[in-house]
Simulated scan of single mutants.
Amino acid sequence: MLWVKTFHLLFIVSWFAGLFYLPRIYVNLASETNPETRATLLGMAGRLYRFMTPLGILALILGLVLWLHYGIGQGQAWMHAKLLGVLALLAFHLACRRHLRAFSNGTNTHSHGYFRWFNEIPVLLLLLILILVIVKPF
Rank of each mutant, 00 (worst) to 15 (best):
L90W: 09
I61V: 15
W67C: 08
F51N: 04
I57F: 04
W78S: 10
V65H: 08
R50K: 12
A77F: 11
Q74S: 15
W78E: 05
F103C: 01
M52G: 04
L68Y: 11
R50D: 15
Y49Q: 08
N105F: 10
T53Y: 10
A91M: 09
G71A: 09
R101N: 15
L55P: 11
R47F: 02
F51Q: 02
M52N: 03
L66I: 09
G46C: 03
R97Y: 08
L94Q: 12
L100D: 01
G73K: 07
G56Y: 05
R47M: 02
R98T: 09
F92Y: 15
G63N: 09
G56Q: 01
W67N: 10
A95K: 15
Q76I: 07
Q74D: 14
L87N: 02
G56K: 04
L48S: 08
L94G: 00
R101H: 12
H69I: 11
I61M: 11
L94E: 09
N105V: 00
A91F: 10
A81L: 13
Q76E: 15
A59I: 00
L58T: 13
L68H: 09
V65P: 13
Q76C: 09
Q76T: 13
A102I: 02
A91C: 03
G85I: 03
I57W: 07
L66K: 08
G75E: 09
Q74N: 13
G85F: 01
